[in-house]
Design a protein around this nucleic acid. Structure first.
Lengths: 352, 352
DNA sequence: AGGTACCGTGGGAGCGCTCCCACGTGTGAT
DNA sequence: ATCACACGTGGGAGCGCTCCCACGGTACCT
């Protein structure tokens, strides 16, 4: 029976807990305690173990740890969108940056998982069923998405980045979409615009609905009437913005401003406006949402509503980690869900 | 001693191999064989096991598998850059898309790891030392990066996306940077330009050097002299492009064309050209590299050299997986390294 | 002096798999 | 009829950890 391990031989022979224990002249349990930062170890022993760890270049075997402790020390950032959208929209990258920053000093491992196609969906479901992560960050979820329920059923801690509705059951982080939409429109009104159109985000996204609410209330607040013909659904994409703008122009050729639910949408709208010979901002003022690089580089530079996305990412991690921690001492079911809402800010540029 | 597992109770009780075996009336080994697609199982038995798996909703425990089999079924895409650059440059997203597509139908799990800061570097080294991945995809590596050596020392299969030098020791995938640079410049010459400047990529990137080589040879091939004052180092960033362009304009105000080593660089160059009052393409023709979204949306749309980045991603996965497979039957050291080079294509637009 | 408490410690049991050896049983060659 | 050799199968051993119980020692009470 030839032992097939590489134990001892060449460079691949990784030291085990047991070997560290032998070297330090202590038991396995003690080494484990030192590795995991337990306080129930004397200083002398701890020093001896740490020396042995350093000498041997010991690195814990994650698989063994995961198996024995039933945890993975990793969390997933799940994007229920095709990769294309992930990169097309700076929203995701900013979010990822915040998450990454918050995780940088921890032992947590972040997994980025795309679930844009049905096949990928299925793979994700398998993945979650296998409990390969201790927690999940959910970004950009549609109202009818079954993912949150799955997570609930599997009892996997999760935080969602945009609540699906006013009664979101999952712990959530959001920016003030209502306030953002409202401030965009109030800004346009203050600039003297009166026939202000709105290209919405995807209607099944709660945040998009709230922006519409803000749009409506801003108009009403200024004593203006809400003209439904000035509201056209978009889908956060450039192509959608283009289409919506064309539709609006043919319905209401006299519009003098547009509030688009995203910068990318605004870019599409700009395209249609140009084609129709409208000058920005002279004929039509344009305001976007997200304050992304696109907004800064657009011609003319785009006024946009900034969401503190990076901070939202940070907040998501904070909430998720505490939720995971709360759950560790088993039986702590039914802790109340928390909802964080962060403020937005209007960034004025030449387009309005 | 209260058993702390959830075995049997509620929804969390995940079935094990053993339970599936009992249900199917077979041994553990047989179930394992079915799960892993071994051919040495009779059809009847296989069907029985599959039925039991379905009824119980069995999902293999990855940690246990990783521990027993000493493999993780996951590979890492390592980006030795800050997240910012990852998102700023479409190169990475296209690459990721190709990689993702090639991996979509497999059991492999992809990890995205940023190693842009020293701390993250260290974390990555620990991660690799712990052998938490079976293979590594390395994107955008500088000539003096110690990562490849570390991977070699740890005997972790790896594929690099741009070779570090002509004598790259790792298996590599690359596009024809020389040919791409050459075709860009030949295009400009064909358009009647004669004083063609070049803003390079980061000089320590081999691919950037090759583009410079292509630039030089194209000029020589047309009987034009290479003027070193027309070559200015950039760093693939917009800011770098801006700076380089300003430098070039002050040195050679009479230049009539610019070949930039990336679209982002070209965007920066465009900015400086505008500031200097030069019209594109009337006064100065501009050609970029990557054929990214930026190129299409630039004003005017940018002529650019397309690299088949998505295909490169696919090719990387192919090579990596075969390398991992080759290594599995232990002792197969010293297989020759392979190097794939994919062709580029010039996409003409209004900027030239 | 005896009792009690707690602290630091060692090591058994077990996590859920894979690997491999050993063991029938059926088939074909001799 | 006998041997040889597949093939499909069962189950022991072991992967490297964590968890927890049990143990001896010291400090503090009564």
């Amino acid at each position: 029976m030839a032992s097939h391990g590489v134990r001892g031989g060449r460079s691949g022979g990784r030291p085990t807990l047991e070997e560290v224990a032998a070297r330090a002249g202590v038991g396995r349990g003690t080494v484990s305690r030192v590795i995991n930062g337990s306080p129930r170890v004397s200083d002398a022993t701890r020093a001896a173990v740490e020396a042995a760890v350093a000498e041997l270049g010991y690195v814990p075997n994650t698989a063994a740890r995961a198996l024995a402790a039933n945890r993975t020390d990793s969390i997933a950032l799940v994007v229920p969108e095709p990769e294309t959208r992930f990169f097309a929209e700076p929203y995701f990258s900013d979010m990822l940056r915040g998450v990454g920053a918050e995780l940088a000093d921890t032992e947590w491992q972040l997994l980025l998982i795309f679930a844009g196609s049905d096949r990928k969906r299925q793979r994700l479901a398998d993945y979650l069923s296998a409990h390969r992560v201790d927690g999940v960050l959910l970004v950009s979820v549609h109202a009818d998405d079954p993912l949150p329920d799955l997570l609930d059923r599997l009892e996997i801690p999760a935080v969602i980045s945009g609540p699906r509705s006013a009664g979101e059951t999952l712990t959530s982080v959001d920016s003030d979409n209502y306030g953002g939409g409202r401030s965009a429109v109030e800004h346009l009104i203050a600039r003297g615009r009166r026939r202000i159109a709105h290209i919405t985000g995807r209607p099944d996204v709660y945040g998009a609905q709230r922006r519409v609410d803000g749009y409506r209330d801003a108009l009403r607040g200024a004593g203006l009437e809400v003209d439904e013909l000035l509201i056209e659904p978009g889908d956060f994409t450039e192509e959608g913005g283009r289409r919506a703008m064309s539709a609006l122009l043919s319905r209401r050729p006299d519009l003098d401003a547009v509030f688009a639910a995203s910068d990318v949408t605004a870019a599409g709208a700009r395209h249609s406006l140009r084609e129709a010979g409208r000058r920005i901002p002279h004929d039509v003022a344009l305001v976007g949402y997200d304050d992304s690089a696109i907004a800064r580089h657009m011609d003319p530079p785009l006024t946009s509503v900034r969401q503190p996305i990076e901070e939202m990412g940070r907040a998501m991690i904070d909430l998720l980690l505490s939720e995971i921690a709360d759950r560790r001492p088993a039986g702590t079911r039914g802790l109340e869900r928390r909802h964080a809402v962060l403020a937005t800010e209007l960034v004025g540029r030449e387009s309005s």
